[in-house]
Simulated assay, not measured.
Amino acid sequence: MKKFPPFPLLVLLPLALAGCNKPASEAEPPPGELPTAQTPAPAAQDAGTLLPAYHWRLAEASDATGARIDPLFVRADRPVQLDFADGRLSVSNACNHIGGGYRLENGHLTVDRMASTLMACADPALAALDGEVSRRLEGRLALAVDPATDPPRLALTTAADERLVFNGEPTAATRYGSAPERMFLEVAAQTQPCSHPLIPDKQCLQVREVHYDEQGLRTGDPSAWENFYDQIEGYEHEPGVRNILRIDRYTRSNVPADASRYAYVLDMVVESENTAR
């Protein structure tokens, strides 16, 4: 494979105040419990750092009576996921991709009106999931983050006193501890046999790098097709389908001698073609 160039308040109170007791409204929550909307300071401070560092997957959802909100759990193996980056909230694993701007203030998350792609879904429950999610996330929600649990937890409470709890999974940037290099790989429709000392009868993806300018137009000539011995996290190849992938490539540290120094993570599928038709 061709090698490409590799592309992180605390306020110290005066000692004279060390013996002062906290007001009851600022008391720490009991161990194992999430901070509530009445303890906004730690939640807001943690959220600004933690929200972009994790993928947040829906684990619990209950209404004001404590009953489970079943319409939010359409895909058991692919729960609704929130991602926070650059002031935008993105929702995946619904029928469409949904997104909107967000702000953190005084222990609350405020989400602007959300927009979505316009893909139709045959499953009525899945098609309805977009609306079920959007109407609960838009507006001002009480927010609490507990970074001490494993995994970390995010709790959002709506104006209707519905409670949504999400488990955090570290993003690739958090796991690899480095900024990625953005690149584009074209993946051929068919794999090819390739030699691997540890994997008999290994089939390799056939890839080549392609380039785009700032306007999103393809430029120059692609590189030659090559065997791709690594894995692309988040990508599952379908035989007969050619794809162009936008990839985040991370340079790993402390890599064993028999492992790749790079980790490849799928950002999005830019182009897809079924060559079998």
Rank of each mutant, 00 (worst) to 15 (best):
K3L: 13
P5G: 12
V11L: 12
L13Y: 11
P23R: 02
A37G: 12
P52R: 13
A53I: 04
H55Q: 14
A61D: 10
A61I: 08
S62C: 09
D63P: 00
T65D: 09
A67W: 01
D77E: 12
R78V: 11
L82T: 04
D83S: 14
N93G: 09
R103G: 07
N106A: 10
T110R: 02
D112Q: 00
R113I: 08
M114S: 00
A125R: 03
D130G: 04
D130C: 06
D130Q: 08
V133M: 06
V133P: 04
L137V: 14
R140K: 15
L141G: 06
L143K: 03
P152M: 07
A160G: 12
A160S: 14
D161V: 11
E162V: 03
V165C: 02
P180G: 06
P180D: 13
E181G: 10
P193C: 04
P200W: 02
D201Q: 12
Q203L: 09
V210T: 07
Y212Q: 07
E214G: 01
R218Y: 06
T219W: 07
A224I: 10
W225K: 10
W225F: 09
D230P: 03
E236F: 01
H237W: 01
D248M: 10
D248E: 15
Y250W: 04
T251N: 04
D258N: 13
A259K: 09
R261C: 04
D267W: 05
M268C: 09
A276M: 13
